[in-house]
């Protein structure tokens, strides 16, 4: 080798460039794993499908001899036991898991009805936890026809919209 120290700066430059490339590549690789914004929508989709399914199944009577579905009975009665039954049923449907992952799903349920002045009233049913505002919630709804007016139990059929806000803990 010729004794010559003229190329040293080039060598350092080469190493520096190599290092920069390695760091860049590392950053790109790392950044993309955080970059999947689609993920949250997938969670929302799964949660919404599950919530709608649960409400839909609560509005199916197990037998043709039942005149009311569980959901209709709960909305018509709406006493403390009914509210508790709503919670039990809904959590049973959303949190039962076979071979799949466990879900810790919380919800807040209410129903909307129209009063005599055409004002929409929102009546709380029950919740598994208070909504603090920080949660990322999705909404599932179900129409039900019940023998009940808004607030006062006028014994005539009315359509009300049951709304459930769901979120994962």
């Amino acid at each position: 080798m010729v004794k010559n120290d003229g190329g040293q700066l080039y060598t350092i430059e080469g190493f520096a460039a190599g290092l920069i490339m390695v760091i860049t590549a590392y950053l790109v690789v790392n950044a993309t794993s955080v970059y999947t914004a689609g993920d949250t929508h997938i969670n929302d989709m799964q949660l919404e499908a599950l919530g709608s399914d649960a409400l839909k199944m609560m509005d199916v009577a197990p037998n043709s001899t039942n005149s009311e579905t569980p959901l209709q009975r709960i909305i018509t009665g709406l006493n403390p036991q009914d509210r508790e039954e709503f919670k039990t049923l809904f959590l049973k449907y959303t949190n039962t898991s076979g071979s799949g992952p466990l879900h810790d799903i919380q919800f807040n349920a209410s129903y909307s009805c129209r009063d005599s002045n055409d004002i929409i009233q929102n009546v709380p049913i029950t919740n598994s936890r208070e909504l603090t505002g920080g949660e990322h919630v999705v909404r599932a709804t179900k129409w039900v026809i019940v023998d009940k007016g808004c607030y006062t139990a006028a014994a005539r059929d009315r359509a009300v919209l049951v709304e459930v806000l769901l979120w994962r803990d």
Binding site: S112, C113, R114, D118, I120, W143, I145, R156, D157, R158, A159, V160, L161
Partner: peptide, 10 residues
């Protein structure tokens, strides 16, 4: 009434 319920609440 039910018809109005459905339309207005929707």
């Amino acid at each position: 009434d039910v018809e109005s319920d459905i339309k207005i609440i929707s």
